[in-house]
Simulated scan of single mutants.
Amino acid sequence: MKIVVTGGAGFIGSNVVRALVEMPEVTEIIAVDDLSTGTLENLVDLPSRFLSGTILDAGLLDEALAGAASVIHLAAVPSVPRSIDDPVRSHQANATGTLMVLEAARRHRVSQVLLASSSSVYGANPALPKREALRPMPLSPYAVSKLATEAYALAYSSCYGMAVLPFRFFNVFGPGQAADHAYAAVVPAFVSAALDGRPLRIFGDGRQTRDFTYVGSVSSVIVEAVRRRVSARDAVNLAFGTRVSLLDLVAELEAVLGHPVDVVHEASRSGDVRDSQADCTRLRELFPTVRPQPLRVGLEATVGWMSARVPAGR
């Protein structure tokens, strides 16, 4: 079976490709990426075919999707702050890009489309934990574009009978996640700073909470969805109901490193939500055998991966 991964050279995408390689049912893997945030280094030694280009290119999508059994659509311009700086680019990549992928999947009669949405769609809705039936209240262009991603998928399911599964990701972290840019996610930013001996920057008081999800757990769910051909009539949270403050994250990181780290507090950022925690009832119903990696285990793997990339003597 042929599987296409858009954003396949990115952090989550390359981890998914690595997991797909272990599936005996998979005979061909196509990774599509424009390398705007991904890197070919992530695909080194993985038996996949790489197609360079944007998902806004219908011809490229036709080449990639012809004969595919499933599309795992992860390509996006990530980050809330990045979308605030450039909302049009965020919309084009995340909303219009999703529409292009769905149209290509329809042209080629792909039997399953899995898509990445985001917990950011809950936005200002204060209810915890975040149940999929809650009213979305997005606070950023990124969140709006991700809401459009899942809405388009569900519309295509309704109009064209397409089997879709939109996942709402919650603060995914792990090996392969870049920290060397201004929009880096909090875990790689913290780990990189700690390894460099720099203070960890916390925007706000640090008591804001997140449902940190190890990328290996995300990949396991996605691979299981492909294997069992799982689809859904609504978005599904892909997280496991943990609630960790940034201050607690710092404490966990100190325990992994074996020494304290310095922290500096800065003003809260526009578009950031205060608290996030998934209700994983629907996920457990669809994937009852999947077990998440504990935060400590995920941090150990992330620190190990990033330590190997710190130049000697730095």
Rank of each mutant, 00 (worst) to 15 (best):
S145I: 00
A151N: 11
A153Q: 10
A153S: 13
A153K: 10
A155R: 11
A155M: 08
S158W: 08
S158I: 12
L165E: 08
P166K: 02
F167L: 05
F167C: 06
R168S: 07
R168P: 01
F169G: 05
F170V: 07
F170Y: 14
V172K: 04
F173S: 01
P175Q: 10
G176N: 08
Q177I: 02
A179G: 13
A179E: 05
A182P: 02
A182G: 10
A182T: 13
A185D: 14
V186I: 15
P188W: 09
F190E: 05
F190Q: 03
V191F: 12
V191N: 04
S192L: 12
S192Y: 05
L195G: 11
D196Q: 15
D196V: 06
R198E: 14
P199Y: 09
L200M: 11
R201H: 09
R201E: 13
I202G: 09
I202W: 02
I202P: 03
F203T: 09
G206R: 11
G206N: 11
T209S: 14
R210W: 05
D211I: 08
T213A: 05
T213P: 02
Y214W: 09
Y214K: 00
G216D: 06
S217C: 02
S217D: 03
S219V: 08
E224N: 10
A225H: 13
